Amino acid sequence: MISKVQMLSVTALGNLDAYIRIANLWPMLSIKEENSLAKRLRYHGDLDAAKTLILSHLRFVIHISRHYSGYGLLQADLIQEGNIGLMKAVRRFNPEIGVRLVSFAVHWIKSEIHEYVLRNWRIVKVATTKSQRKLFFNLRKSKKRLGWFNEEEIEIVARELGVSNEDVREMESRMSAQDITFNAFPEEDVKDGKINNNMLYLQDKTSNFANGLEQDNWDKHATDKLSSALLKLDERSRNIIRARWLDNKKKSTLQKIANDYGISAERVRQLEQNAMKKLKIAIEN
């Protein structure tokens, strides 16, 4: 199959009119020619046959893309996406079914264009499910005919599309909404003496302010209790506890402390245990 790069490089001519003229130069295929090319591709992997099938149907992609000109997107981009759909259709086309390639390719071409429109029409997707996508494109057609909807018009559209009134209202609301930036530009940060930055109003659902405040209060309370309890120990016991448990540096060994005080390591261990008991009692009271 001809690659996407090879196929879509035609649109890189820099002039849409030139591309359309080139696409229209390729003659349309007769039923017999199309069937023969499709069989060569399907049964023999003939890439030249695939190329001819694709190029002879480019004008059809151009025709379909014009129906999506009201979305504010470049027609060249719409054509490019439609060409991808055409290539997918050619790859899957079975000449034995008895339908023309153009009829088979409609679904694939529109599907690619639809996906592109939904990805690029707004920053935030207006339609994610299959039913929402169908409603989005059908609602756009209805909008051109009816303009802004009142209750009666909503009921008409809902009945025509087989959806609820609420679905129509929700999609109309999504389509009418505008994208706005969360981060204001520096000169727009302050308006009428107030900070104008939407980022400040985003809710952090992972944060629990009450729990955080309670934890901070408890940590301060525990630190104050420990500091008071240490002051009740004699200096040597206090230094042992700090060297063994509270210094930010590497924890001192019993033998090192024993060498500093000229006593045995066992005696240091006993002093440490006695000091820990006194601290526990002082903190709990």
Rank of each mutant, 00 (worst) to 15 (best):
I2L: 14
S3A: 12
K4E: 10
V5F: 06
M7R: 06
M7Q: 04
A12C: 08
D17G: 15
Y19S: 14
I22N: 05
I22C: 02
N24T: 03
P27W: 02
L29T: 01
I31M: 09
E34A: 07
N35K: 09
L37G: 01
A38Y: 01
L41R: 08
H44T: 07
D46S: 07
L47R: 12
A49P: 05
K51P: 00
K51I: 09
T52N: 04
L53P: 03
L58G: 00
L58A: 06
F60D: 02
F60A: 03
I62N: 11
H67T: 11
G70W: 02
D77A: 11
D77K: 07
L78M: 09
I79M: 09
I79Y: 03
G82S: 04
I84M: 14
G85M: 01
K88H: 11
R91P: 00
R92P: 01
E96H: 05
I97K: 08
I97M: 04
V99F: 08
V99Y: 05
H107S: 11
S111Q: 13
S111Y: 11
E112D: 07
I113A: 10
I113N: 07
I113E: 02
H114T: 06
E115W: 02
V117M: 08
L118P: 03
R119Q: 12
R122V: 00
A127I: 06
T129I: 05
S131C: 05
Q132Y: 02
L135G: 02
N138V: 02
R145N: 03
L146Y: 14
F149R: 07
E160F: 07
L161E: 12
N165C: 09
E166L: 13
D167E: 15
V168N: 06
M171L: 13
E172M: 12
S173N: 11
M175S: 05
M175R: 10
M175E: 05
S176R: 13
A177F: 08
Q178V: 13
I180F: 15
T181H: 12
F182V: 11
F182T: 06
F182N: 06
D189C: 11
V190C: 06
K194A: 14
K194L: 14
N198L: 15
M199E: 09
M199H: 11
Y201D: 06
Y201C: 03
L202R: 12
Q203M: 14
Q203E: 11
Q203R: 15
D204G: 05
K205Y: 12
T206Q: 10
T206I: 05
A210P: 00
A210E: 10
G212S: 10
G212N: 10
G212Q: 12
L213I: 08
L213N: 06
E214R: 14
Q215K: 15
Q215L: 15
N217K: 15
W218E: 13
D219F: 08
A222S: 12
T223N: 05
D224Y: 08
K225S: 08
A229S: 13
L233G: 04
L233T: 04
D234H: 07
E235L: 13
S237N: 10
N239Q: 13
I240T: 03
I241F: 01
A243N: 09
W245R: 13
L246F: 14
N248A: 09
K249L: 04
S252V: 04
T253D: 00
Q255M: 06
K256M: 09
I257D: 03
S264Y: 04
A265V: 01
E266I: 10
R267G: 00
Q270A: 10
L271C: 02
L271G: 10
E272P: 01
Q273S: 12
K277L: 10
K278P: 00
K280D: 07
I283P: 00
I283V: 14
